[in-house]
């Protein structure tokens, strides 16, 4: 995938993901009227980026709104998904601001490396923890954490063997993810698996924004693999 195609694809995916996030904030009731207006502006900027109408100023505008959101909510509203949104926005802004192709590629490469780390580090901290290795961590997540979206999902805590297999499946996927960079087909297969993992998290734990925003970074990694290996 060429550098330009990668950027355009990421702009479209990111614009759609931010539009989805913004629509949820525009919903009446949750925020004061003037704050909802800012999310409506964010929605407009995101959609203009999707149709290719506003780059690079749409990107810069979205980055400024993201800073305002950090101030408004005194941190991320939606944890890791907001952080990933800001990271992708920052890297795409740096691509636009870079003086030459070398620095543009460095900015996109930084995002690709962070995406790999997002899986590998997450797998590493889990596998180093005995409660993840023996399966009790995932059991606790289902049993009493705030994440399961319905009480019936808590019954998964009564299937420790299934959760042990699921936990090790996730850890092995995350730890082995960097190896997928060695082969284009393996990388695409790994990305299908990690997308499935995010989809499962969205279904069980309601983390829909994570699914969409992590997908936005995938083209950067496909380009990176093609460029480096």
């Amino acid at each position: 995938m060429s550098f330009e195609t990668t950027l355009r694809l990421m702009e479209i995916l990111l614009g759609l993901a931010i539009a989805q996030q913004s629509l949820e904030h525009v919903k009446p009731g949750q925020l004061a009227g003037n704050h909802r207006v800012l999310f409506a502006l964010r929605l407009a900027l995101a959609l203009s980026m999707v149709v290719g109408y506003s780059a690079p100023y749409g990107l810069y505008g979205l980055w400024v709104v993201a800073l305002w959101m950090l101030h408004r909510f005194q941190g991320p509203y939606n944890g890791g998904s907001d952080k990933m949104t800001l990271l992708i926005l920052t890297c795409l802004c740096l691509v636009e601001l870079a003086p030459d192709r070398y620095w543009q590629e460095m900015a996109l490469s930084y995002l690709a490396v962070q995406l790999v780390l997002s899986y590998f580090v997450s797998g590493w901290v889990k596998v180093m923890n005995p409660i993840w290795r023996n399966g009790s961590a995932l059991r606790d997540v289902f049993r009493y954490s705030a994440y399961p979206v319905s009480e019936s999902f808590r019954q998964w805590a009564d299937s420790p063997r299934v959760l042990w297999i699921m936990g090790w499946g996730v850890m092995l996927l995350e730890l082995a993810f960097p190896l997928a960079l060695l082969n284009p087909a393996a990388l695409k297969l790994a990305l299908v698996c990690t997308a499935g993992f995010h989809f499962a998290n969205a279904c069980f734990f309601g983390l829909n924004r994570f699914f969409w925003i992590w997908l936005c970074a995938y083209p950067a990694l496909i380009w990176f693999q093609d460029r480096i290996f």
Partner: peptide
């Protein structure tokens, strides 16, 4: 608040 987004730790669910 911005720095942890630009240099993330990615330690999801380290402990419950």
């Amino acid at each position: 608040l911005l720095l942890p987004a630009l240099i993330p730790s990615w330690r999801f669910f380290k402990t419950v």
